[in-house]
């Protein structure tokens, strides 16, 4: 009895004090989370909802329809733009995945002069503002096209090719970063074990290194694909005339007013991106 009598007055103020201290913090943190989600996702949610709205007017909900999606599929310009986007994304992903993986391996395996400088320079496209990257690529293509024209009489133009090269340039560092993360906890004794068992350098790479890096490589590839499909700024500056991708098509339509077809197109693009990023994250988690 005496023990409860002495402890009770001590615990009571402690508990109340703690409750007072926590309450404002709890409120601020939770409302912060709520507001963040609201700002980030409310526009997207509204966009998706209105892509199903049976009215040409934006602000009023009339009823559910998939008419805009049907119109979108029948629209030849949309189909052409989607085709361009896919070709660019597939080619640039394939090339940047190979270059990025090889870069990651070189940085992980070899010590060479100016390695740190090279590493820093390689990550630059991740940090540099997209507009700067876009303009520098534009200037680069212009200059080299002029030189080629003057020296070799070659006439090259902006188009799918320039967009693809530009996409490779900004997406391979992302592949390299993802693959290097995978390499960071790669157990080199596995390669030694393979060599010990009679595998030469190529066989070791083919049967041990590559399969173990594969989740990282695939994750990097999905990331590169997403970046390519979604890119607007760099594509816009390096597209020239006639080569339109989905984001460029959407931009072109928006200038003539926001239509439900644009909403539908954006919703599809959003869905594809979410699927790709999700795939990338899941692959990176795999052991």
């Amino acid at each position: 009895m005496s023990t409860t009598a002495t402890t009770a007055p001590q615990t009571a103020p402690l508990a109340t004090r703690r409750r007072w201290r926590l309450k404002p913090g709890w409120l601020v943190l939770n409302s912060n989370v709520l507001l963040t989600f609201l700002f980030l996702y409310a526009p997207i949610v509204i966009l998706v909802i209105f892509s199903f709205n049976a009215s040409r007017q934006q602000a009023v909900w009339v009823g559910f329809t998939i008419e805009w999606y049907e119109q979108m599929i029948r629209d030849e310009r949309v189909i052409a733009a989607a085709k361009n986007s896919l070709i660019i994304a597939l080619v640039s992903t394939a090339v940047s995945t190979v270059i990025g993986t090889l870069t990651a391996l070189a940085l992980d395996r070899f010590r060479f002069r100016a390695k740190t400088a090279f590493e820093g320079a390689m990550y630059l496209p991740i940090i540099v503002p997209e507009i700067v990257m876009a303009i520098s690529l534009l200037v680069f293509f212009n200059t080299s096209f002029n030189l080629l024209d003057r020296w070799l009489g070659l006439t090259l133009k902006f188009g799918l090719g320039t967009i693809t090269i530009a996409h490779i340039a900004f997406s391979f560092p992302f592949v390299a970063v993802v693959v290097r993360a995978r390499l960071a906890d790669f157990d080199r004794t596995l390669e030694q074990a393979a060599q010990d068992l009679g595998a030469n350098e190529w066989q070791t790479f083919r049967y041990v290194t590559l399969p173990l890096l594969m989740p990282g490589i695939l994750a990097g590839a999905l990331l590169a694909f997403t970046l390519s499909i979604d890119d607007f700024v760099i594509t816009f500056f390096n597209a020239g005339i006639g080569a339109t991708t989905l984001p460029l098509e959407i931009y072109g339509r928006i200038r003539r007013g926001i239509t439900p077809e644009v909403n539908a197109l954006s919703a599809v693009l959003l869905l594809a991106s979410i699927a790709l990023v999700l795939g990338s994250v899941l692959l990176q988690r795999r052991r």
Binding site: T189, L190, A193, Q195, D196, L197, N200
Partner: peptide, 18 residues
């Protein structure tokens, strides 16, 4: 190189291919 030597190794952490 290791792959041309008639010896085999059992590694400390086994180094089994996962």
């Amino acid at each position: 190189p290791p792959f041309r030597r008639n010896v085999n190794t059992v590694f400390q952490n086994y180094a089994l291919f996962p």
